[in-house]
Amino acid sequence: MLAKRIIPCLDIKDGQTVKGINFLGLQNVGDPVELGRRYADEGADELVYLDISATLEGRKTFAQLVEKIAAGINIPFTVGGGIGSVEDAGLLLKAGADKVTVNSAAVRNPQLVSDIASRYGSQFIVVAIDAKTIDGRWVVTTHGGKRPTDKELFSWAREAEERGAGEILFTSMDHDGTKNGYPCDTFARLSEMLSIPIVASGGAGSVADIAEVLTVGRADAALAASIFHYGEIAIPDLKRQLAEQNINVRI
């Protein structure tokens, strides 16, 4: 049976992991390869590395880093942050990334999704969508939820699928960072509508939240950052507890 996936997300700035980490015995918590390997050993099913560098120099460092990650990690990994063209995606493929995630650039230029999918295959492109409710409607946003766009969540998700996206990574900006759980009805609707996997992001504060989005919300995977980085929930404990609730996870 296909397992539900647990995916830690690592933010990278100028080639180093940001956010504090409480891993015992980890020599260099800032080293994205070492941290990724540690997560892989703990049972992470995939990794996501997001480049949040603001400078050109930082971005160059990231491309070199992707090669090191590919050489050092034995599970699939996705990279994202600032991918604006087919060429950007191609360089990351060449460096060894299994998938790329596009967000704002795809909102500005939806053709980018079609172009990456037709060039490198649907399995290579994840469309990340940040949305929040405005007057009862799910509005797609950019710039970390600050800028609403004219796109609506469900129609944009469907368009992304039709253009060849292999997965949707959906973050509710109403829930992100709150640790109050996910909007499970919205995830369930997305999952029902689409025939590609849905990755749930933003809002997990507990094992129960993750269990709920994987069952009630019918998400195929859960992505989280801080609960793993700060050691609030360890991946082996999370998976054991999910398995106890009859959720199929890889242990």
Binding site: M1, L2, R5, D45, P197, D220
Partner: peptide, 10 residues
């Protein structure tokens, strides 16, 4: 079923 079959299976 979702196709491609993607992820961890037994």
């Amino acid at each position: 079923l979702k196709v491609p079959h993607m992820g961890w299976n037994t």
